[in-house]
Simulated assay, not measured.
Amino acid sequence: MHGPRGRYVSLSDLLAHVPGERWTWRLLEFTGVGEMPDGLSVEEFEEAVSAAPTGLPFDWPSLREFASRVEQVQDLILLAVAEGAEPDPAALLAMDFSGSPFVIEAVDSTEWIVTDRTGPASSALVALRSFHDTQGHRDLP
């Protein structure tokens, strides 16, 4: 996915602007290329993500490390979850992410969708808007 000047915008680029240390994270969907955690192949990692009904859990340092090793994201759904909380499996099955304070989605290698419910014009979303591109990013309410 590319930003306004044609620069590739990676997951790592996005996470650099997210105040993610205050949450745990759940990876609900992933298709991509790169070095996967625990020496898994891409296929094995994608299967592990798919098999986790409430998403594959990450703490912030592990998520940043994972993102730094991903070369390209094709599809992704990544949710922030309050520390110590568990996502509602029924809501996740219905693709209802309204209970999550921060959501990052990648769609078909062409679009980042970022939802920030932490407050009006949070610093994270303001920074992420710097990557705005009419074909590469949109904000959801």
Rank of each mutant, 00 (worst) to 15 (best):
S12F: 12
L28M: 15
S122D: 05
L140H: 07
G34L: 10
L93A: 15
G3N: 06
P37D: 05
D13H: 14
Y8V: 11
A91K: 15
H17K: 12
V42S: 14
W112H: 06
F97T: 00
S12Y: 12
W112A: 03
L79G: 05
D116C: 04
R69T: 04
D88G: 05
S62L: 10
S98C: 03
W25K: 07
I113R: 15
V81K: 02
R138T: 02
T24N: 08
T115C: 08
D96G: 06
Q74E: 13
E44Y: 10
L125A: 10
L14D: 10
I77N: 07
S123Q: 13
L93G: 10
L15Y: 07
P61I: 00
V107T: 06
T31N: 10
H2G: 02
S41G: 13
D13C: 05
V49F: 14
P61Y: 05
D13K: 02
V81C: 09
E47N: 05
I77Q: 11
P120F: 12
Q74M: 08
P120A: 08
P120E: 13
D59L: 02
V73G: 01
E71K: 11
L128Y: 05
T134N: 03
L76Q: 08
M36I: 04
H17L: 01
G136Y: 08
D88Y: 10
F97Y: 15
D75P: 03
E65I: 01
S98R: 13
F66P: 01
G119F: 11
E44G: 06
L92Q: 01
Q74N: 14
G119R: 06
G6S: 03
T118Q: 14
Y8K: 11
E35T: 15
E47D: 13
P4A: 13
I77T: 15
S50N: 09
R129A: 01
D75K: 06
G99K: 09
D88M: 04
